[in-house]
Design a protein around this nucleic acid. Sequence first.
DNA 1: GAGATTAGTTTTGTCATAGAAATAACCCGA
DNA 2: TCGGGTTATTTCTATGACAAAACTAATCTC
Lengths: 382, 382
Amino acid sequence: MRNTTPPWVPDAGASQAVALEVLLRGPISRSDIARRLQLSPGSLTRLSTPLIESGLLVEVGERGDGRAGRPSRPLDVVPSSRHFIGMKLMGDQVLGALTDLRADVIASESAALESQHPDDVVATIAAIAARLAARVPAVTALGIGVGGLLDDHGTVLSAPFLEWEDVPLASLVETATGIPTVVSNDLVAFTEYEHWFGAARELDRFAVITLGAGIGYGLVANGAVVASPDSGIGLVGHWPLDPYGPVCPSGHRGCARSILTQAAIVGAVSTALGRAVGYEEALDLAAAGEAAARRVVDDAGRGLGRLLAAVANLTVPEMIVLGGEGVRLVEIARDAVREGMALDRDPRARDIPLVTTTGDNTEWCRGAAVLAIQAYVLPAAR
Amino acid sequence: MRNTTPPWVPDAGASQAVALEVLLRGPISRSDIARRLQLSPGSLTRLSTPLIESGLLVEVGERGDGRAGRPSRPLDVVPSSRHFIGMKLMGDQVLGALTDLRADVIASESAALESQHPDDVVATIAAIAARLAARVPAVTALGIGVGGLLDDHGTVLSAPFLEWEDVPLASLVETATGIPTVVSNDLVAFTEYEHWFGAARELDRFAVITLGAGIGYGLVANGAVVASPDSGIGLVGHWPLDPYGPVCPSGHRGCARSILTQAAIVGAVSTALGRAVGYEEALDLAAAGEAAARRVVDDAGRGLGRLLAAVANLTVPEMIVLGGEGVRLVEIARDAVREGMALDRDPRARDIPLVTTTGDNTEWCRGAAVLAIQAYVLPAAR
DNA sequence: GAGATTAGTTTTGTCATAGAAATAACCCGA
DNA sequence: TCGGGTTATTTCTATGACAAAACTAATCTC
């Protein structure tokens, strides 16, 4: 299984920029691109023609939007001209998705892990990749999101949920599959997805919070993801939200993990009701007005609101994207979230739009696919 | 008094980039610039020669640093080739400083405000500017830092400490002085200074916290200041630091303003001792081991530490710069600061260097001067 | 003093770009 | 229906910024 896809653009430089502009800003006319990139109209003809001839771009239906003048002939990428695979590595299973050039999911697969040994994990990854790759002529690149600490070369420095240390995952997978592979932090991947193709597309500043087994956080400022070697530690997990709240395993009182995680909510509601309930059931009960569940969910919502206020105060985002498997909490406890947010927020400060994603599990895979797309599309940084 | 300075560089583009590189990275050899800007050595000769001939750059003493090969002839800007004025506008007075191209202070002046009426304030500003400008052949640009909300064109939208709303300060001052004027938020200015010429020079990510009458905050991420229309509200002022702390005027318990400001510390120590003490005296008492002062100062230090932890967790900075008139608190309560920071920080997360500035009042002026320098030096953004 | 090494200059050819003018394709009102 | 206004795109050409390569310069090492 070899990578047979043609290169992204024949040459680097302005061609790259034009292609990237079309990839990111969807159908866009030559003149708009010229304005954005500060190029002359003539240059745009010269640059776009070979990209169209190579099959990467196409002219899509004219846009006669009622204005005077010759209608523009917007350009768009052919999403299906390249395919990518994005995977999310979890403690007990691997999720994978086959996507196009815009990270839209074409097919998805998953498989349970037999063990957490790197060899088994790589074999599982390769098996999923093979099944997904069989559906298309070629897969250009593969991205894997891992919750943990990583270096820049795709080595997992530390992933507690797998009990891994210093596993060169990218090169192992690349060898096993023959597909160029990038590995990065799952939250960085998720954030990149929102940045390139998701709800925060085109925004210069936004934050991401995910709810689920843990609390995830990602940040984009000045048009790029803010990442550091510490990304992956989960720095907001023990954020103090409620001085009178429950105690978490590390001994913090009322920290984000003790209030906001699925386990915390399930535990609190189960204890209150004297029977085991699931996460969705807990939210359903709260929505139906059951007093104990309502209280737990509202406390969580208020805590989330305070966390959002903290993020908003320190990073002045234009939007906050909420995601993760547990994101329905935001919907059920929307008033409490707003209330908690108002507590720590100056009334003069502008309202930050809160956007929730579907909470679908393939979200993580799309994020990982974006990593692969970026590795293919972006000028190689040396 | 007219602006007679020559333009920054004859043409835009690569020349700009070379000049900027030299301005920001101090003495630097042609070959280093070529590497940084991805230009060929030949291009560097071509680009640097006219800049040297125009008097902007000079070759400074050779650097034979023991390595083999021909020694480099580092280039540097001539700081005294251009002069700027930076001002800090306060409720009762105006501070001004005359600086060179690197925002180093040549002379400083201050004057009390007769009233807060815009006409009086502008007259005071113009008087200081005239006295400073008399010391040099020409002043290229003038920058003013204001604590409050501003728009992009130098209009003060809201400055509570002056009771101003919608005052077009930049154009008023420009008319009164004849010097091109920019007005911006004082914290943005301070942050730009640290970014361009201060302790955080060259860093890609850092945060700034200032202590004084209020608590200031600034952020640089991905190599640029993160600013929003909300910059200037003072969003960290009511950050919750201590659930059992004192109550601030807005009714928040244990918020940053109620613990960290000079007024809060002075008030707490004075109450405890039953007599009025000043800020420096309160810190002196704490340093000398006086129990009540020690306790107040340590509480403040711990609170500051928790604020720093919050900033560090959400913005993953490479450094935090601490400044403002009250910055000596950090020195006196260093252990408490570290302790507070450790409370909310994952032990696996890397240590963030804390750097304190002098707390000198001209710091704010240098920041404002950097605004003027940037307005002159940066390619005009359209 | 020869060779290695790094810095900077000169020279030359290429190619990307802007600029201008032409063409295309629409709208609108007469 | 036709011509004028308007915007998009193309064609053509001249400029000039750039890289590449060869060369000079100035040091260190052996």
